[in-house]
C-alpha cells in the first residue's frame, strides 16, 4: 500500500496547485525510495526515461516558424476568416467555430483560445445572431451563450488535437505504453483518434441544435407574454 504514496503526492500536489514539475519529481523519487530503489537507480531510471522520451518535446522545432507567422498576422487572418462566417443562429456560430477549431487542432495549429477567439469573436457573433433573431436577449440567455461558446473551444481543442501525428497526447500515449512494455506507433494512435473527433463534432452539433430550439421556445414565450 505504501507504494501508492506517489499517486497520493501527485493528486494532492496537483489539487493544491503546487509547482507541477516539482510535484511530479517528488512523487517519482518518493515512490522509488519506498519501492526499494537506491538513489542511483532512481536517477538512472529518471534519466533514461527522460532521454528516450525526448521526442515528446520535439514540437520545440516548430515554434520558430509559428512565431514568425504570428508576427506577420496569422491570428488576424484566422480571425478575419471566422468573422466572415454567415450563420443564422447562435448555435450554428458555435458549431462552425468548433469544427474550424477541431480541424486546426488536427493540423497542429494552435489557432484557438478563449482569450484570442471566444471573447472577442465567437461570443459576440453568437450573441449577435441571437439578437437578430429575437430582438431582445435576456441576461440568463447571454449567460448560456457564454457557457456554450467557451465549451465549443474546449470540444474542438480536446477531441481534435490527437489526430495530429506528433500531438503531445499522442506521443504521451506511445511513450507511456512503451514504458509499460506495450509497443504502438504515433501513426496508429493518431488514426485511432479520428472516430472520437468526428463523434465529438456530432455531439457538439446536437447540443447546439437543441440550444437553438430552447432559445426559440423561451424567447417566443417571453415575447408572447409581453404582448398580452
Amino acid at each position: 500500500m505504501i507504494r501508492l504514496i506517489g499517486v497520493l503526492i501527485v493528486i494532492a500536489g496537483f489539487a493544491l496547485r503546487l509547482d507541477t514539475i516539482g510535484v511530479v519529481l517528488v512523487a517519482g523519487i518518493v515512490t522509488g525510495l519506498v519501492g526499494g530503489l537506491s538513489v542511483g537507480e532512481i536517477l538512472t531510471t529518471l534519466g533514461t526515461a527522460f532521454t528516450t522520451n525526448r521526442y515528446m518535446t520535439l514540437f520545440l522545432i516548430t515554434l520558430p516558424v509559428i512565431g514568425i507567422l504570428e508576427r506577420y498576422g496569422l491570428r488576424e487572418v484566422a480571425a478575419r476568416a471566422i468573422r466572415s462566417i454567415k450563420a443564422a443562429t447562435a448555435g450554428r456560430v458555435m458549431t462552425i467555430y468548433m469544427i474550424v477549431r477541431e480541424l486546426a487542432a488536427a493540423f497542429s495549429l494552435r489557432l484557438g483560445g478563449h482569450v484570442q477567439f471566444i471573447r472577442p469573436l465567437v461570443y459576440p457573433m453568437a450573441l449577435g445572431a441571437a439578437e437578430v433573431n429575437f430582438e431582445e436577449v435576456d441576461e440568463e440567455t447571454k449567460e448560456l451563450i457564454k457557457g456554450h461558446s467557451a465549451a465549443a473551444e474546449n470540444y474542438g481543442n480536446f477531441f481534435g488535437q490527437n489526430v495530429f501525428i506528433a500531438a503531445g497526447g499522442v506521443l504521451l500515449i506511445v511513450g507511456t505504453l512503451a514504458e509499460l512494455g506495450v509497443e504502438v506507433t504515433a501513426e496508429q494512435v493518431s488514426l485511432a483518434s479520428i472516430p472520437i473527433a468526428v463523434i465529438a463534432f456530432v455531439a457538439t452539433l446536437i447540443q447546439n441544435m437543441l440550444f437553438d430550439r430552447k432559445l426559440a421556445k423561451r424567447l417566443a414565450a417571453k415575447q408572447a407574454q409581453a404582448e398580452n
Binding site: 506517489g6 501527485v10 517519482g28 531510471t45 526515461a49 527522460f50 522520451n53 515528446m56 511513450g175 514504458e179
Partner: peptide, 14 residues
C-alpha cells in the same frame, strides 16, 4: 509530458 513518462517508468520500477 516527458517528465510524466519518466514518472511512469519510476512507478513501473517500483
Amino acid at each position: 509530458p516527458q517528465l510524466l513518462a519518466a514518472l511512469g517508468a519510476l512507478f513501473a520500477a517500483a
